[in-house]
């Protein structure tokens, strides 16, 4: 005989438990624990992605915190398997907002300084930590990441997002499409172009 299917609510991942005394509180505690686990597992990677996109650690921390608050505030009731793409969707929007503001700030500064080059912009390759006393593969990895960061800065926003979400965060095509707010075909196209650009820029260095 086949197992009887468990009836689940439309919005919760857990079976319905309404009507029992204390059920609402238990449900909230369960959700809180699940969200804590989810965020603890994702926060450091999300922060690194935000750093690569924004190239500013303080802004990256703010963006991740905002994304956490919005996910918890608006999507706590969604099934857990939706949290990851939703979290990155929110984070992406925060990053885009911050980039736009930074662009306006730079434009205003350039206008008032007569178009002088922004000397405060970080050079990711110069930022690579002092190599002395560390294993070769670690140094090579840091240098590769710094070069990738420099190439990512030259890509279109969509290409950069496709690479960060697909490669660094390991989202599948469907999840990346939700995070980027576009079609799966668009994700594939942008990701392939980003990989082409990286291969072109890093090919000689890798050889």
């Amino acid at each position: 005989m086949e197992d009887e299917p468990v009836i689940r609510s439309a919005t919760l991942d857990a079976p319905l438990s309404l009507g029992r005394p204390g059920a609402a509180r238990e449900e909230r505690v369960d959700r809180e624990r699940a969200l804590d686990r989810f965020l603890a597992g994702i926060e450091r990677r999300a922060y690194r992605v935000a750093c690569l996109a924004l190239r500013d650690r303080a802004e990256a921390e703010d963006a991740v915190q905002d994304a956490m608050i919005r996910l918890v505030g608006h999507y706590a009731l969604r099934p857990e398997d939706q949290w990851r793409p939703l979290f990155y969707r929110i984070l992406r929007n925060r990053i885009t907002d911050l980039q736009r503001r930074a662009g306006i700030r730079r434009a205003v500064m350039a206008f008032w300084s007569g178009g002088a080059r922004d000397e405060s912009a970080p050079d990711p390759i110069e930022d690579v930590a002092d190599a002395r006393g560390r294993p070769d593969e670690v140094i090579e990895g840091e240098e590769l990441l710094a070069r990738i960061e420099a190439v990512l800065a030259t890509l279109s926003r969509r290409q950069r997002e496709a690479f960060l979400f697909r490669n660094f965060e390991g989202l599948d095509v469907a999840q990346a499409a939700i995070a980027m707010g576009c079609s799966e075909g668009s994700v594939k196209t942008h990701y392939f172009r980003a990989m082409q650009a990286l291969q072109g820029a890093l090919g000689e260095w890798q050889a």
Binding site: R28, R31, E32, L35, D36, L39, A40, E43, R44, Y47, R57, E61, V64, Q65, M68, I69, L71, V72, G73, A76
Partner: peptide, 16 residues
């Protein structure tokens, strides 16, 4: 940074 991220998470969950 880990500590600041953990605090950010705690802040978000306090909201909940």
């Amino acid at each position: 940074t880990r500590s600041r991220l953990a605090r950010a998470r705690a802040t978000a969950l306090t909201e909940l």
